[in-house]
Each structure stands twice: as structure tokens, then as C-alpha cells.
Computed example of a mutant assay.
Amino acid sequence: MHGPASPGWLLVALCAATGAYCLLRMRSGVEEQRRAAGGEALMGFGMAAMAVPPAAFTPPAWAWPVYAAVFGAAALRALWAARASVHHLHHLVGTGAMAYMAAVMAASPSPAHAHAPGGSGVPLLTGTLLLYFTGYVLLSGVRLLPVAGAAGAAVAWSDRPEVARACRLSMGIGMLAMLLTI
């Protein structure tokens, strides 16, 4: 590592690549997959933008409330969509976590010090989100294990379920990394 900014840049690259693949998945012939990919692309690019190390770029004070509003709106959309599919509950938790992190960053006295550890322990909501995403990452990792006898037919890149699962896993890992810095 070349300093404290290196993990941040790795997280930026991971999340941006995941967001880019999710944009590719939006070309799928399956409508539900297209909708999910759009929300996941927003999460990937939003996580990439929020993970830029403060030494490289300190966003203006108004950026964090804007992030909170965007992800708050995405959380409301996920809440509405959760009526039809349980999968959207995970999107609700993810977008809610992003809105929460943006609100914490907006309330911090200095963006450069927002990533510094300290304080009187882990807040309850942060701890709960850490537990949720730890479980999600472990479960997503298990789902990537190959199944005996499962021969896949030729599928377009935008319809590859194992790549979509790997993207979800990487975003879960990214979410854990971001929550650990709060």
C-alpha cells in the first residue's frame, strides 16, 4: 500500500466497475433484471463517488445532503417496489444505508476527518448495518459456489446470473468497507 488513500481508490475502482457492469445488464431481455440492474448501477456509482479519498477530493458541503436525498429517494422507490418482490428489501436496506452514511458525512465537522476512527463506540444503526451486510456477503459468497451438474447454456453477458451475483457480492463488500469507516 502507498498510504491511506490506496484502499479508498481500490474501493472506487471496484464500485465503478460494478456500476458499469450493471449498466450493461440494463440491456437484458428480462424486464425485472433490467430494473434491478438500474438500481444496482446507481448503488455502484454512488458508492464509487462517496469512496473517493478525501486527500484526493473533498466534496463541497452541499454534496452530502444531495447524496442523502438521492439515496433517500431510491430507498422510497425500493420500498414501493418491495410490495412486489422480496429482493427489493435488500435494495431498501442498501439505499437506506447509503442515505445514512451520507447524512453522517454531512453532519461531521470536517470531511477530511470523517473517516478517522474515534468516538464512543459503534452507533446501533451502524452496527446493525454491519451485521446485515456481513451476513449478506457470506450468503452471496456461498451462492457463488459451483453446483454439481449445473451446465450453463450460452448466455449473453448482460444475462449472466453468476456475474450479477459476483457484482452484488462486491457491492456488499464495498458497503462493509464504507460502514467500517464511519
Rank of each mutant, 00 (worst) to 15 (best):
M171T: 07
W62H: 10
P146V: 11
C15V: 00
S85C: 10
A106E: 06
S170Y: 02
L179K: 06
Y132L: 11
L138M: 12
M43W: 00
A13S: 09
A150K: 15
A61K: 06
G72H: 08
C167N: 12
V93L: 11
L89T: 00
G174A: 07
S158A: 12
G121I: 06
V142R: 14
L144C: 12
G46R: 00
C22P: 00
S140K: 09
L179S: 09
S170K: 01
L124E: 11
S6L: 11
P109Q: 05
G127E: 05
A63E: 02
A177F: 10
L10C: 11
G39P: 04
I182F: 07
A5S: 14
E40F: 08
A41T: 00
T128P: 00
T18V: 15
L125V: 12
S140N: 10
Y67R: 04
A20K: 03
A61E: 09
V163P: 01
A151C: 14
A164W: 01
A97W: 06
V66R: 10
S28F: 01
A151K: 14
A17W: 10
A154M: 04
A151T: 15
A148I: 15
D159P: 01
F71Q: 09
M26N: 04
F57D: 05
P65G: 07
G38A: 12
D159L: 02
H87P: 00
G135N: 13
L11Y: 05
A112L: 10
W80D: 05
W9G: 09
A55Q: 14
R25P: 00
G72A: 07
A153L: 14
G72L: 05
A73H: 03
G174W: 07
R34F: 04
Y136K: 08
A20L: 12
G135E: 02
I182T: 12
L125E: 08
A112M: 10
L176V: 13
S28A: 13
Y132Q: 08
E40D: 09
G38R: 03
A51V: 03
V86D: 08
A17G: 11
A103V: 07
V86F: 14
A78H: 07
A151Y: 14
A49T: 12
G152R: 15
A151L: 15
G94D: 00
M175N: 04
H87G: 04
P60T: 02
A41N: 02
A5Y: 10
P161M: 13
E162D: 07
P146E: 13
V142E: 14
M98P: 01
G141E: 03
L42E: 02
A69N: 03
L169C: 14
R35S: 01
R35G: 08
Y67W: 12
V86I: 14
G19H: 05
A56C: 10
G39I: 01
A75D: 01
H113D: 15
R77S: 07
A16H: 12
A103W: 09
P161C: 12
R83C: 06
G39N: 03
I173M: 13
G127T: 11
F71E: 07
L169Q: 01
A114F: 02
T134P: 11
A154I: 05
E40G: 03
F45N: 00
A153W: 13
P53W: 04
E32F: 00
S108R: 05
L42C: 05
G141H: 01
G119W: 02
A82G: 11
M50N: 01
G119M: 08
R34H: 06
R165M: 08
A156K: 13
